[in-house]
Design a protein around this nucleic acid. Structure first.
Length: 683
RNA sequence: GGGCCCAUAGUUCAGUUUGGAUAGAAUGGCUGCCUGCGGAGCAGUUGGUCGAGGGUUCAAAUCCCUCUGGGCCCGCCA
């Protein structure tokens, strides 16, 4: 093999970039002692400029007192050509001083392909990079009020969080996913009032109705009634107090009700292939006295103060993050505000205060792992009690995912943490913009749109229910699949499985491909459209690739045996025999290479997989991976359309292309796994 | 009034973190390609004063300032 034996798990693209980076660092060292030059090695903007480009000539104009093209030519002639002549195992095959001043390079695709094959085909599974070194990561997402059904706005949160979980998990991080269950807020109290005092039947008239859907409807109706009926509002106050104060009949009733709804919400999450480790029950947090401990810390450190006058008289308040205003933490009646409850939760996540919880098994979930829930009742004989505490070590990152309306409060949390522990910077707030409804969709839901942007509202009943959306998409897909399989013998359950796989993938992909700080305008027609930049496009490319391998009649073991021969014998011959090419102003010839342009483009993008993962972790934005999936699927479709594999008569070429197809499948499958798209070898 | 975010093709968006060569997709409209490895695909064509103005720079969609339009936040609600 041409690659360094020490590099057990090389990142193909990085190797090439590092080689060039090293080369230019040495050139700078010899040319301008003492001067720090920060150059860039980028992809070229256009194929005819080669693959990679360096802007160094622009940066040296003042030091060398020459024009960029003159410098570029000098560097190529005096430094780069001698370097390449001496270095036979270079990943660069040609260099050019362009008249614009750029120095351009072409990559040795044979070697690059060798690295990809090595990485994809020769280990049991593709080895992800060990970026995390088993660091402990906590991600909180979902956290939907347990009184209603999950809608597409919640789904953006869920999919974002779950994708991040998958990415951290697969890069060797020890990740735990939290879901905060606010069982003691007004929203839950509303439906308790509905059933206990407003005469709503506890069970839906149609027993088929999903219980969270039913409660969501009741919630809309009862909040409407409350606007007229002051008595119900009084009842709600009582209910809230009862729930907060412990074990009264109403508290138990509420707790049971929450569990029933939560169970249904988690079914939706599971259907979307989102998974959790722990449910943080808010009432347990209240019972745990975590707040009292946090309150004491805040007082001890003089972070909060008691207002003796002004608009917040007799309240405990805190200065806002900009120190301009104050925010109430404890009301004048001694009760704690909504915001205040986030403080002990954050301190607990960061392990700044001791863990007061016990943990009880909630259920086994779809991926085989267990969901736990907090509990505080020490007298109860706990079912499957977890002896170990939830935390075994301090988290390296605590990521809280909430929509951007919470940005101000989350930044306040961060500033409070900084005041308690100045060197603590592991708390990350990940915000994202809302999902809104298109005017047309709003109209379909029976709400006349007032503006072009319609915000969803659970309380008004103005939202797109996630379960219903999944069903709609699934139904449409079943029809489409049946249309395409009239002569075939696909079983109904197979069709259903495929439809399900495409439906949830379509939703997941549509919710993460867009930037976090852009509003997603949901339109029902667009959401059920399966053309263009959708997950189906990716899944279709994946299925096509599978079909080629299947029809090749080369079994996996044989493919790997052939690939080993290829990488051992063929690559060294190619790479050492190719003469180093230099060009000036005339572009790069490709006819000396054995690859077609569509193959080269696919190889180049497949090589970037590890870089893409790094970038995703840096930005905490799975969008990067979604875009990448689309890029490689597009490159594959071009390859598929233009380069024959099975019909290729040259056995070596045919095999080489089979390796490429297999590598594509493995890398796309990895990307699918990271963003939760279901890989289907047949559609 | 103060703070945060957005503005790029008819429409939905990449590209902005880290300035660089002719600003890219998808979708819509029009036109081709199924005896070919799956046409849920591919190719072609149409379509842009990168919201406006100023500044920095050899070079600005990208950095800075001002303005305009849109969204969100600013409660002893949650």
């Amino acid at each position: 093999m041409v690659i360094d034996d020490n590099l057990e798990n090389p990142n193909p693209y990085r190797i090439v970039l590092d080689e060039l980076g090293h080369l230019f660092k040495n050139i700078i060292k010899s040319l301008c002692r003492g001067n720090e030059i920060i150059f860039k090695i980028d992809e070229t903007s256009n194929e005819r400029y080669g693959d990679l480009t360096c802007n160094i000539a622009f940066l040296l104009t003042k030091i060398l007192k020459k024009s960029p093209p003159q410098i570029a030519t000098k560097l190529v002639n005096d430094h780069i050509i001698p370097y390449m002549k001496s270095k036979k195992d270079s990943f660069i095959i040609s260099a050019e001083a362009h008249q614009s001043g750029y120095i351009n390079f072409r990559i040795d695709y044979n070697k690059l392909f060798g690295l990809i094959i090595n990485k994809t085909l020769f280990s049991e599974e593709y080895k992800y990079q060990d970026i995390g070194n088993n660091e402990f990561i906590i991600i909180e997402h979902t956290s939907v009020n347990p009184n209603k059904a999950i809608h597409i706005g919640h789904l953006r949160n869920i999919i974002l969080g779950d994708s991040l979980y998958r990415i951290f998990k697969n890069t060797n991080h020890d990740v735990k996913v939290l879901n905060y269950i606010d069982d003691s807020g007004v929203q839950v109290a509303d439906i308790v009032v509905a059933f206990l005092y407003a005469g709503f039947p506890e069970t839906p008239s149609d027993p088929e109705t999903k219980y969270d859907h039913y409660c969501g409807d009741v919630y809309v109706k009862v909040t409407n009634m409350m606007e007229q009926d002051k008595l119900l509002l009084e009842k709600r106050k009582i209910v809230i107090r009862e729930i907060e104060n412990g074990d009264s009949k109403i508290a138990v009733y509420s707790s049971d009700l929450v569990k029933k709804i939560l169970k249904e919400q988690l079914k939706t999450c599971a259907e979307m292939r989102s998974r959790y480790d722990l449910l943080n029950i808010e009432s347990d947090m209240i019972k745990s006295k975590l707040w009292e401990k946090s309150f004491q810390i805040l007082k001890d450190k003089n972070i909060i103060y008691f207002a003796k006058e002004g608009k917040n008289v007799n309240c405990w308040v805190i200065k806002t993050a900009d120190e301009e205003d104050e925010k109430v933490i404890v009301r004048s009646d001694g009760t704690v505000t909504y915001f205040a409850k986030d403080i002990p939760y954050a301190l607990w996540k960061l392990q700044i205060i001791d863990d007061p919880f016990d943990y009880e098994e909630y259920e086994k979930q779809w991926d085989g792992s267990k969901i736990w829930m907090t509990t505080i009742d020490k007298n109860k004989q706990l079912k499957n009690h977890n002896e170990k505490k939830f935390f075994e070590k301090k988290p390296a990152k605590v990521i809280t995912i909430i929509d951007s309306r919470q940005a101000r409060l989350q930044n306040l949390i961060i500033s409070i943490i900084k005041k308690i522990k100045p060197d603590e910077n592991n708390y990350y707030y990940l915000g994202y913009e809302a999902v809104t409804l298109s005017p047309l969709t709003s109209k379909i839901l029976g709400f006349e749109p007032e503006k072009n942007i319609v915000h969803m509202s659970g309380r008004k009943g103005l939202f797109v229910n996630a379960d219903i959306l999944i069903d709609q998409l699934k139904t449409k897909l079943v029809q489409e699949i049946e249309k395409r399989n009239q002569n075939q013998t696909m079983q109904l359950d197979e069709i259903n499985k495929i439809a399900q796989g495409i439906a949830i993938s379509t939703i997941r992909y549509s919710l993460i491909k867009q930037d976090l700080d852009k509003i997603i305008v949901f339109d029902i027609n667009e959401a059920t459209n399966l053309d263009g930049d959708t997950s189906l496009y990716l899944q279709y490319a994946y299925a096509r690739a599978h079909r080629i391998l299947e029809k090749s009649d080369v079994i996996d073991d044989e493919l790997i045996r052939l690939a080993k021969l290829y990488s051992e014998k063929r690559i060294p011959i190619y790479s050492s025999d190719i003469e180093v090419i230099f060009q000036n102003d005339r572009g790069f010839p490709l006819d000396t290479l054995n690859f077609r342009i569509e193959e080269i483009n696919l190889i180049k993008d497949l090589a970037k997989f590890d870089q893409i993962i790094e970038q995703t972790l840096e930005t905490l934005n799975p969008k990067v991976l979604a875009r990448y999936a689309n890029t490689i699927a597009t490159k594959f479709n071009l390859f598929y359309e233009n380069v024959p594999v099975l019909k290729e008569t040259d056995q070596n070429l045919r095999n080489e292309r089979l390796f490429l197809v297999k590598s594509f499948i493995i890398i796309l499958n990895n990307v699918f796994d990271l963003i939760g798209i279901v890989p289907l070898s047949k559609i």
